[in-house]
Amino acid sequence: MGAGDILFFLAAAVSIAAAVVAVTDERLLHSVLAFGVFLFAIACAFLIMGAEFVAVAQIFVYVGGVAVLILFGVMLTASRGAQRTVETEHPMWAMVCALVLAGTLIAVAAAYRPATAVQSRAVDVSLLGNALLGPQLVGFELIGLILLASVIAALAVVRREPGR
């Protein structure tokens, strides 16, 4: 077993464990912390796959943005009861659905044989830059628009009516 394999299994184990804790733990803060660990493990998985820029972008945006946002949400909606969450009464059906989903996806994944060989070299950042400002330019501009729209939407939703 090469070091790459060990690293992958470590990252995979941590991400699965953290995801399970994030979706099952009763205390909200523990859930969110486990989610943070999960995001970091996914960033490590990206690094193992040779996507350096995406891994760093994942840390920047997800850990530094989404996780912080969620923690802000936890802080602002703190009440006596909300710190302990209760699950629905029938988790068994959800478990069955999740197992079926997992089984199907794993079966398909195991049967997949890629047509071309896997490239294991890390993708250079300049390639990404050229793609973003070249063929993917429309997407690049559009995502700026989406970000603007979502910020305005979020502000509009939380605005207090004037006069309150």
């Binding site: 995979a12 991400s15 699965i16 995801a19 399970v20 994030a22 979706v23 099952t24 909200l28 998985a45 909300a82 969450t85 209760v86 699950e87 629905t88 988790p91 059906w93 959800a94 478990m95 659905c97 999740a98 197992l99 989903l101 997992a102 199907t104 996806l105 794993i106 398909v108 994944a109 195991a110 997949y112």
Partner: peptide
């Protein structure tokens, strides 16, 4: 691919189950 499928299922379980 197996890892991503597993994580998708775990996430789906979370969305279906949680009340908060």
């Amino acid at each position: 691919l197996v890892l991503s499928g597993l994580l998708l299922a775990i996430g789906a379980y979370g969305v279906m189950t949680r009340r908060n």
